[in-house]
Design a protein around this nucleic acid. Structure first.
Lengths: 204, 204
DNA sequence: TTATTCACTAAACTATGTTCAGTAAATAAT
DNA sequence: ATTATTTACTGAACATAGTTTAGTGAATAA
């Protein structure tokens, strides 16, 4: 009697349908327009139904966050083709910035918005974020091994570089830096990034 | 007949009473607990009254933002006592970080939250933010004149440094970096800052 | 054929920002 | 001093959120 299995499949399918609707809403109209009622409208069910598949709104946002991190991680992986660690670190920064500026709403959800973090138990590590940070840490470590960076702790340097790119894109996303016209943004941001990385990476 | 003048005084007084209530609510209980109804409760008026003195909630948040920027600017001014531009730049970073970590809710409102920016007309410059950025730009310019920094544009470097400190504190405030225990935060953040600034500032 | 479980909905509850008709007091006009 | 008008304020309401729940009809099990 495979009814239980089929039920579970149906359940997962419905979860996916809800997530797809939420994602399209999110990407098309932005975070603030993602409401339970609009998700329900989109899938042609009542709002209450959504709660049969997700505990609350945060759980949905969390799932979308994971989708974002999957894509983010995928892009990070492409960097492993670059052999020179200094080159790789520069490319790393560019990939980060590109992802953020191409997917501002998603980046917002992943790294800025408070909401979806509520679902993570407070004392637990934020694993999904840690995974991406580790890729950066390995890159920094390679740079140190290859003597492109000679002083400082891996953690402090990684945090510094991450903060630099995060700071740049989040100032832009949250519109705290209207001095750059939109069409020059990428160029300007990469100029700042290149400058700082050039100072950090010793010229061998 | 000074009734009109008195009325205007009363009006400003009432605005101040509302702002004080909002600020206390904001600092004591955080952004999410600042509601029109709770402000009204606190001053013992009805919610509607608040709208006789402020156009909407954003206008109140904007006013609180200005209060934050006033304090922020005041702290920046203290730096003018430091003569060595490189020293000053390092102190500048520390002042920034200290302000943010001591007043996370206020910092959030000033540099992270979307809401209060809606009040600013889209095409206008964000003057109050620009003022603080200019202090940094002058500091960077001094560093270049004194040959502590030899290459790069003032704008790109200032933006880079600002982004670095903003990135660090906003990752912390929005809990994207649980790897640092709270009691080591300031030390760790300053270690990262010192590292980057040491690389940027040439050793004369 | 009957009993039970299940998926779903409509409606309600709480809380938010915001608006508005009405009221009583302060002010101005007569 | 009396009347008219303006003003400051309130209570109730509206729209929109997230979320919960009683009830219903269909699918499943007995």
């Amino acid at each position: 009697m495979g009814t239980a299995e089929r039920k579970e499949r149906d359940r997962q399918e419905m979860r996916q349908i809800i997530l797809d609707a939420a994602q399209r809403l999110f990407l098309d109209e932005g975070y603030e327009h993602v409401t339970i009622r609009r998700i329900a409208d989109k899938i042609e069910y009542s709002p209450g139904t959504v709660y049969l598949y997700f505990k609350d709104k945060d759980e949905i946002l969390c799932a979308l966050q994971e989708i974002g991190f999957a894509e983010f991680y995928r892009r990070q992986q492409i960097l492993s083709g670059i052999k020179n660690p200094a080159e790789k670190l520069r490319a790393h920064g560019r990939v980060y910035i590109q992802f953020a500026l191409e997917n501002p709403e998603l980046y917002d959800l992943m790294f800025i918005i408070r909401a979806p973090m509520n679902s993570h138990p407070k004392d637990t590590e934020w694993e999904i974020g840690m995974r991406s940070l580790n890729v950066l840490r390995e890159n920094v470590q390679e740079c140190m091994k290859a003597n492109f960076i000679k002083v400082g702790s891996v953690d402090a340097i990684s945090f510094g570089i991450w903060s630099l790119v995060h700071g740049m894109v989040s100032l832009i996303i949250r519109e705290r830096i209207p001095m750059i016209p939109a069409e020059h943004r990428t160029a300007f941001v990469e100029e700042s990034l290149d400058f700082v990385l050039a100072e950090i990476l010793e010229k061998n």
